[in-house]
């Protein structure tokens, strides 16, 4: 059973600006991989999906204590664009 993939939709969800050619390439590779991955459906029985910690850790919390923050200049120095203590990005929506 071939796996259907709306690659343009997936690329949009993942915020990846791909050319039509690239998308077609990834779509065909993904379908091969997903065909193989679909073998998970051959599992017999219906065990509960396992998302527990292997050592059974639960309730890992920290106390409500303030720790020192990073130096702002150092933080902003790593960013592509900043101004007056803020990170700067282009506007949110198409105008």
């Amino acid at each position: 059973m071939p796996v259907e993939i709306d690659i343009a939709h997936v690329a949009k969800l993942a915020r990846l600006d791909l050319s039509p050619d690239e998308m077609e390439g990834y779509r065909s590779q993904l379908s091969v991989i997903l065909d193989h991955a679909a073998r998970v459906q051959s599992l017999e029985g219906e065990p509960e999906p396992d998302v527990t910690h292997p050592l059974g850790m639960v309730n890992a919390f920290r106390a409500d204590e303030i720790k020192s923050s990073l130096d702002r200049d150092e933080v902003l120095a790593a960013s592509p664009e900043s101004r007056d203590g803020y990170f700067v990005v282009p506007p949110a929506l198409e105008s």
Binding site: R83, D84, G85, Y86, F87, V88, V89, P90, P91, A92, L93, S95
Partner: peptide, 12 residues
């Protein structure tokens, strides 16, 4: 206004 902004400043 969001829809006519030229750039956006971010404070975390």
């Amino acid at each position: 206004r969001i829809d006519s902004a030229q750039s956006t400043l971010l404070d975390f």
